[in-house]
């Protein structure tokens, strides 16, 4: 099994440990921002989730390219795993975003470019998973879902700029310029970013393993 490989087990334990430390650090180790108070703490979860989500979809696009050019199953597996994990983190972004926005902007949803891009990518991937489940011929589904992963990510800058031009008054992302942050916020943020990325890679290797096991099971029946 997956965790019989000692390396995987240690990685999992390290990931859990890091996550716990990171959470403690966010609650007790970061300074309070005066006008946001506790609400600002979600920033340390929201932004790293978004980073992992986009990274994941980016890898899904690269895997899509590699699958189409090499036709190797491992790229299809990586692509699927990334699509799943990316969607999980994008849902976290879409949940934490409104939680953060409610006290800051006074309402849960504002058509802000980053949030909107996340929402649209998320919706595109809903279509991706529908293709995966109801597409029919599996060999063809692999190709079409690789194509979806590619165009979904190519569409990201287009969505971002269109929303930016559409509602220029809504540029007020609560914490935009990272280089203007005091180090008291920046360092814990970077730590959180690292921890989330680490968890992402642990999840990815596990998910890839589960998908390939599933494949072997259905083929041997």
């Amino acid at each position: 099994m997956f965790y019989e490989n000692k390396k995987n087990l240690y990685l999992l334990i390290v990931a859990i440990f890091l996550f716990a430390l990171n959470s403690l650090n966010i609650f007790y180790g970061t300074p309070m921002v005066p006008d946001q108070h506790w609400a600002q703490k979600i920033f340390y979860l929201h932004v790293p989730s978004a980073w992992v989500g986009f990274l994941s979809y980016f890898i899904a696009m690269i895997s899509g390219f590699l699958f189409l050019s090499t036709k190797k199953d491992k790229w299809d597996i990586t692509g699927t795993a990334c699509a799943e994990i990316g969607t999980l983190f994008m849902s976290l972004v879409l949940i934490t975003g409104p939680i953060w926005a409610t006290p800051i902007w006074g309402k849960p949803w504002i058509w802000e470019p980053r949030l909107t891009t996340t929402l649209i990518l998320f919706l595109t991937y809903v279509g991706y998973f529908m293709m995966r489940s109801f597409g029919g011929n599996i060999e063809r589904v692999k190709k079409t879902s690789a194509v979806i992963a590619i165009i979904a990510f190519l569409n990201v800058p287009i969505i971002f700029f269109s929303v930016q031009f559409w509602s220029p008054e809504l540029q007020s992302h609560p914490q935009v310029e990272m280089n203007q942050q005091p180090t008291g916020i920046l360092i814990p943020f970077l730590i959180s970013l690292f921890v989330f990325s680490f968890i992402f890679f642990v999840m990815l290797s596990y998910r890839k393993y589960v998908i390939s096991i599933n494949k072997n099971l259905t083929n041997n029946v």
Binding site: I120, L123, T124, M130, M131, N137, T144, N155, V163
Partner: peptide, 27 residues
């Protein structure tokens, strides 16, 4: 073209199209 050969192409097509086409509709 992507959704053409899918079993539920008539549903999959708009589900995939609408998010991807939103920038165009805004423009």
């Amino acid at each position: 073209g992507i959704s053409m050969r899918a079993r539920i192409s008539e549903i999959l097509f708009p589900v995939l199209l609408f998010p991807l086409i939103s920038p165009l509709i805004i423009a």
